[in-house]
Design a binder for these strands. Structure first.
Lengths: 125, 125
DNA sequence: GTGCATGCAAAACCTTTGCACCCCG
DNA sequence: CGGGGTGCAAAGGTTTTGCATGCAC
């Protein structure tokens, strides 16, 4: 299916790329309404799905909740088990994660993500 | 809160440890009914949550669906993006994943999981 | 004009919860 | 016996979908 330009999709995409973090569908919807008060929540979900399929955004689950992010550079996530904070970390190129799994047989790794759980600086105080 | 023994919880736990794979809540419920036809789905969910909190089972999201597994040895997951197959992989001890992230500052990594996406042997044929 | 995209609202889906009763410790 | 555990069913939150209309191409 060929996708056609829509103002709504562009706005959602912009919100996510501008916001350097992780937002839930509801939070995205709130921000959307400030610019396009008539957009519906259904459209937000539809476009999040499309954008995810196009590889423009990434979806992740944190504490049972779905979050979306617009960061396109390869990265991994560290998640604080106390406050739920999610932060991106960028591996030096020579530590590429796919290599960590090069010994896996009968499977062609295309992408590999690390999700690390622990305690952040703030919560450790 | 102290947990007390229940046949229901023991059964769910056994189903997951015996089954070397990944099951959804509904699939677990189906298997439960063969042994305990009176158990309710609510009890399955309640116990999955308790067992997860006790660290006896692990929950993961694959293609928007929740799956549970009883494997307790540290491991990572490879997921086929075509058929949805999930397989456990066990890293040699000297490649422990936490070390991959030792350069991360201001965060104490307790556990780190790799989720690798790619194409499995079957789908590649 | 064609048919993907949208707004709206209903529906589907998965999971949680309130309540009265049960039973482990 | 006290309080966690259960069955049942209703409710909850999130996400999807049908339909008529709108708009990109």
């Amino acid at each position: 299916m060929k996708h056609r330009f829509s103002h709504q999709r562009a706005l959602i995409r912009k919100i996510l790329t501008d916001y350097k973090g992780h937002l839930s569908a509801e939070e995205i919807y709130e921000r959307v309404l400030k610019h396009e008060p008539s957009m519906s929540l259904g459209t937000v979900y539809r476009n999040l799905h499309v954008l995810e399929g196009m590889g423009e955004i990434r979806k992740l689950m944190v504490k049972e909740k779905a979050l979306y992010e617009g960061e396109r550079k390869p990265h991994h996530h560290i998640i604080c088990t106390r406050c739920g904070m999610v932060k991106n970390v960028y591996k030096p190129a020579h530590l590429k994660c796919e290599k960590c799994l090069s010994w896996v047989h009968d499977f062609t790794v295309e992408e590999a993500f690390i999700t690390a759980y622990g305690v952040c600086k703030q919560c450790k105080k």
